[in-house]
């Protein structure tokens, strides 16, 4: 199986370039800041981008079909707060995680119905979901009596998110690895993955080949919301608090990471390996800017600029090829 997974990587010219950029960034940052090349710092970077990688792996498949999901941030926030609320009010933690993930999938189902069945432009449809999910996240926080949920959480609330596998690997990193391989597996080994590429490459041909396009799109949206929801739980459990506005901008990160990783916005190509590399680049970039003392708000500007550059690079590389 390893051989099968390797083959397409070598054919993809974008991935070596991304890997090269990462190497250069590491070298440059090591020279520029003495605090960079430390285990602790890498750990920080991974913790920061872990969430993006997990969600973007799923969102990437949606983008491969030529659609997109802007509601991931809201679903992320909704799930965190719901999990916190339930845990605080006596629902056993494992049970609460399960329910939260199920409800998170409902948001994906809503997206899937709107985009796949009713054929509504994905930008608008998922924007609508973003609103509703975020509104409800705020309402849950309010029902609890505050703007966020922190006090009164059970003592073992954080034990899931802060769990160290083998005593030293944060659990989130384990999930990143699992998600990466899961989506690599879906992408390469399942008909779901294969059909996702087909839908993005030529939707009409996919339909005429008997592919159930609506079903594929619905499954992918549900999967993506599940990942966003699970990450919401994970994050809230790790930091020991849940706020209804934590997911803002997450959709942008996810978008940037996918575009950066070489996934075409129009669909048909892209891989989770690119997503991983793209996320690492973003992580290094932010980390570097932090170490160099660039302000938080200026970084926000930078993110928008990076999005523009990533799209432009992609458009150019395609123009050269054709």
């Amino acid at each position: 199986m390893l051989k099968e997974l390797k083959l397409p990587v070598l054919r993809n010219r974008q991935l070596p370039v991304l890997a090269g950029i990462i190497l250069i960034m590491i070298v440059v940052l090591s020279f520029m800041s003495p605090n960079f090349f430390k285990i602790q710092n890498f750990n920080n970077i991974l913790l920061k981008i872990g969430i993006f990688i997990i969600i973007a792996s799923a969102a990437n498949l949606i983008m491969i079909t030529g659609n997109l999901d802007l509601s991931v941030g809201a679903v992320f926030a909704f799930s965190g707060i719901l999990h916190a609320y339930m845990s605080k009010h006596g629902v056993p933690i494992a049970f609460s995680i399960g329910i939260t993930c199920l409800l998170a999938m409902c948001w994906g189902l809503l997206n899937g119905v709107l985009v796949g069945k009713l054929k509504i432009v994905p930008v608008i449809a998922t924007l609508g979901t973003l609103y509703i999910a975020e509104g409800i996240a705020f309402l849950i926080a309010r029902a609890d009596g505050g703007s966020n949920i922190m006090l009164g959480l059970p003592g073992n609330y954080t034990s899931f998110g802060r769990y160290m596998v083998f005593g030293k690997i944060p659990i989130i990193i384990v999930f990143v690895v699992i998600a990466f391989f899961l989506f690599l597996f879906i992408e390469r080994k399942t008909s779901l993955g294969r059909f996702s590429y087909a839908v993005g490459a030529n939707r009409s041909a996919a339909e005429l080949s008997g592919v159930n396009v609506t079903k594929i799109i619905m499954i992918l949206y549900v999967l993506c919301s599940l990942m966003a929801g699970f990450c919401g739980v994970l994050q809230s459990s790790r930091v020991g608090l849940a706020a209804p506005n934590v997911g803002r901008m997450l959709e942008l990160y996810v978008l940037i990471v996918c575009v950066m990783g070489g996934t075409r916005m129009a669909g048909g190509s892209g891989t989770v390996i690119g997503v991983l590399l793209g996320a690492i680049i973003i992580g290094l970039l932010e980390n570097g800017l932090n170490l160099l003392g660039v302000g938080h708000f200026a970084q926000e500007v930078g993110r928008g600029v990076v999005l523009i550059i990533a799209v432009m690079v992609q458009k150019n590389s395609r123009a050269v090829r054709s």
């Binding site: 009713l118 608008i124 973003l130 609103y131 509703i132 999910a133 975020e134 509104g135």
Partner: peptide, 22 residues
């Protein structure tokens, strides 16, 4: 009615308006 319900309504209206148009 809390402001946050309004956010929820906005989402529903947005989707509703699009479905109406389509």
């Amino acid at each position: 009615v809390v402001r946050f319900w309004q956010t929820v309504f906005q989402g529903i209206i947005l989707i509703g308006a699009i479905i109406f148009h389509s």
